[in-house]
Each structure stands twice: as C-alpha cells, then as structure tokens.
Design a protein around this nucleic acid. Sequence first.
DNA 1: GTCTATAGCTTGATAGAC
DNA 2: GTCTATCAAGCTATAGAC
Lengths: 219, 219
Amino acid sequence: MRAGARRGDATRQVILDAAEQCLAAGDFDGVSLRTISEAAGVDIALVNYHFGSKESLVEEVTERRARDVHDARVLALEEARHRAGTAPPDVDAVVTAFLEPWLKRISSGDVGWQNYNRLLCRLTMMPKYLPLVSKLLDPTALHFINALRAALPKASQESIYWGYMFLLGAVVQIMAGTGRIEQLSRGLCTTDDINAAMREIVPFVCHGLRSLERTDIAV
Amino acid sequence: MRAGARRGDATRQVILDAAEQCLAAGDFDGVSLRTISEAAGVDIALVNYHFGSKESLVEEVTERRARDVHDARVLALEEARHRAGTAPPDVDAVVTAFLEPWLKRISSGDVGWQNYNRLLCRLTMMPKYLPLVSKLLDPTALHFINALRAALPKASQESIYWGYMFLLGAVVQIMAGTGRIEQLSRGLCTTDDINAAMREIVPFVCHGLRSLERTDIAV
DNA sequence: GTCTATAGCTTGATAGAC
DNA sequence: GTCTATCAAGCTATAGAC
C-alpha cells in the first residue's frame, strides 16, 4: 500500500466522522458540505473527491455502522433462542436482544455511536430517506418482527407490525436527543443517561407489546 | 374592510395552506419559499410581504392549529375529570383525552390537519426547532403529565416524564407518515387508516404506562 | 396588495495546478 | 491525494413600479 493511499484512507475516516457528527447535530439538508469539511479540518474539494456526492457521503456514513449493529442483534437473538430451549424467546428476551447491542455501543464511550444513533433517528423521520432507511434497517426489522410474532402467537399480523413501530417510536424519541425531555422535566431526566432511559423503556414496551395479544380492550 | 384587505387575507390563507402541505411532505429546510409560493399559486414576493421571513411563516403555520388542539384536549380531560367524580381520571381516560381530539381532527377529512400533524411530528425531531416546539406544546404536555402523575401515584417523577415521551414517540412514529410501516408490512398496515392505528396504540401505551408503577422489573 | 427585477449570499460540484 | 479557484444554480429577502 502506497503512502498516498494510506493518507487518503485517513482523510476518508476523518470526513466520515465529521459528517456523522454534523448530521447528528443539525437538520440534515441544513448541513452543508462546507460545514462538514471545516469540522473535519479538510478541504471541501476532498469530500467530493472521496465520496463523489453528498448523497453518497450520507450513505457511507450510515452503512459504516449499520451492519455491525445488525450482526450483533441477530447474534443476541440467537443466544436468546439457545437459552430458551425449545420454546421461542419471550417478549422480554426479544426486546432485550434488540436493544442491548444498541445500548452497549452507545454507552461504550465512542461518541461516534451516539452521533450515528441520533442521525439514524432523524433519518427515519424523513420520507426522502425512506429508501436508504429501508436498505439499512429492513433486514433487522423483519428479523425481529418474526421473533415478536413467535413470542406473541395470539396477536394478529397487523398488531405485530404496529407494536414494532411503537417500540421503535419510543426508542427513537429518546435516542434522537432533541432536548425535549430535558426541557419538560427541567433537567430531572436526560437522554444522556442511556442506562436510565433503558431501565424505563424496556418494561414499558414489553408490557405494551404483551397487550397486543388481548383483543377485549375497547378504545 | 376594504377589498384589498380581504384579498390579502385570502392570499395569506392560501400561502399558509400551501406551506403546511409542502412542509408536511418534504424535509423542512429542503423546502424553499419558491416551492411553497408555486404550490400556492402566488408570487414568491408575497410570502415575504405577508410573513416577513421564512421563520415567521413556519411559526404561523404551526400556531394556527396548535391552540385549537390544546383547548380541545384540556376540555376532554376536564370532562374525564367530571366523569371520574372524586378520584382522578385513570390512565385510559387521560390517554384517550390526549389522543381523541387529535384523532378526530385528522379523520375529519380536512387534509390540512393531516399535514399539520406530519409537520409537527417532523418538527419535534429537529433540535433547531425545539424552542418553537416548546412554545407550541409545553403547556399541553405539562398539563397531561400532571394528569398522568395523578393517575399513576406510585410511579416516580422521572418515570412519568419518560412515559410521556414513550407515548409521544409511539404516536409520532405513526403520525409522521414516513411510509415505513407500509414498507415493512407490505401494505398490510397503513398510517392512513388512523382509526386502526388508534385501536392499536391506545392499549399499547396504557399498558406501558401502567407498568411504570412497578419497580420490580429487571432489565 | 401585487408583481418584476435583482441584490447578495450559499450551496454542491468541478477543472486544473501541484 | 490535495489544494486553489471558480462555476452555475439555488436560496432568502428587498426595492420600486404599478
């Protein structure tokens, strides 16, 4: 490997990290390549040289970490299956397998994971990026929807999908880091304390999901 | 009232409606005043004449409907209090008072309410707009957080705030209309069928919220 | 109140020297 | 692989005629 290539790889990483950070903090289309290149301490022309376009940059930023989380989640679910023996893993096990790998990475101290997360939450809210979001997350989603189906055999097909979206919604609302809960609770709660958030969210969604098997509840 | 003033008012409404629609469909900063003025069928200069700036336009678009929902929700909660007698309204009553007025407006056939909703969901995900979101929604939020506190006396202060955010997250995930559940369920579920969504979401969040009173659940 | 015209700026992207 | 210089296109906002 030539010295130039090594230097180029380093530049790529610096740009990817800066993009991750800027996109997590700002509002996507409001974040310019100039902002990103300045944060990276790199000339703006290099962004286009290495990534071709802004769109490709966003893709690379997200894809970089998506596969890793997916694999860890699938593995966690596999382990839960092993622990459960012949019966399928219950709701708590499925939810935990879904959230644990995520939580672990966020609280790892690597600020990149926190940025990736915020970015991804923001991304899922924008119709424009639905194709990218689907490419990144559909495999994981369908995998865990299947697991939820097995854990909640009495729930309807539709209910499982709705339940997955509610689970996602609760998590996204916390992970996006909008500052809203800090504002409402006047600092009592903070999304920076991921462990506290997880402690609350797991029982909430597990109880919610289990209720999907009941059909005798009127609105 | 002069004819000119009446015409000006009509233009204002046309612009507000178009802005509501464009902002609901697109990604906020990606939506230009040109897009909005073209959708409204008016000259772009009129947008600045009537609203002064893009920021003010966004404010007016949101504030236009925010007060109405707030009032309806407070009234619904008041009625629930009356029905409940001496005891405070239970979780189901509080959640229903929160969601019913919203649901009613969305399914009223007025497409403006649907646009307003999507727009608002999108807005809550962008840190940049936290001040506006707080101004619009904090009164409602704190009002219902108080009601939840009364309905869940054994839950901790923190849990109530978290629970409110989870409730919000589940609703936002559905209302934002990102097309994700349609994609995942291959058309089986759709956020256009608000009634179906509501039928699923109410029991989910009510069970989730009630679980906040329990403290014996390990992560 | 409305429209034309345009100022002044920022954007993403590229051509060419090194 | 990196940097300077610059492009065309888009944006918000405004000044002035009608």
